[in-house]
Design a binder for these strands. Sequence first.
DNA 1: GCTCAGGCTAGTG
DNA 2: CACTAGCCTGAG
Length: 287
Amino acid sequence: MTAKTTTLSVDYCFDLAETLNSGQVFHWEEHCFGGIDGFAGCIGEAPPVWIAQTGESEITTLRGAEDLVSEYLGLDQPIDQIHSSFPQNDEFLDLSISFCPGLRLIRQPMWECLATFITSSLKQVAHIRAISLTLRERYGVAHQWDGKVFYSYPTPLAIAEAGEEALRKCSLGYRAKSLQLAGQMISSGEIDLEGLPEMTTEQAVAELTRLHGVGDKIAHCALLFGGGRWEMFPIDVWIERVLRKPYRKRVKGVKLQKWAMKYFGPNAGYAQQYLFHFARKSVSVND
DNA sequence: GCTCAGGCTAGTG
DNA sequence: CACTAGCCTGAG
């Protein structure tokens, strides 16, 4: 521990690496600082931060970044309460939780979360990551730190001004149009991300899906990982497999969505994250 | 070459 | 409503 770092204790086990690699966020880079292996990256417009796991329930970060990091990682989340809001006697959910009890939902800045998920459609994690880093390098703000350069996510205006053609050159393909339009509509104020917290869930989804390239899945991801609305329940192919097999649900689309939000309750998104992570990391839930 | 991937839109039945 | 082609790109 150097004079430049602070240690934060968490009242429930916490798994930093799994959390940062669980498909919520894609830009953290492994970085060793003061002899401790951790992760570094930018959160919003702020200068880079470094975060490391230094104990089962202990996180070490840069002095001065405690509040930012604590809020971002959700270190104060009442995990016991969240678990007790889940359906009882759900063995598959219990199994998923025990597979990775230190997994958390993080709270990202809304715009970078939304934009990243717009670029994620039909892409694998490694590729989403590559695209995110390219966008940051080309259109974000550069920050020097510990001998390396880290980039903030480009602002909506920077994305809008980059233009569709230039965005295509970041391997975005047809997603370039969606991202450029989102940058445009948000920087012009036509879509108001700041107003989302005051809206009901239905209103917030309706507002976000006005964006080209944003359907239910991406809107739910943005509101869950960026808006801190733990009742959201994004349904992708992994979750659909889980709901089909262990949960024997045959319905699809909006019906499935409604069922899941009701069944898993006010923290359905948390349940979703455990299920999603378990489905991806454990050997085949396939039929 | 080919298939497939953590979606969405626009169009059809 | 339910279903489907087409969209770009890189990895296997």
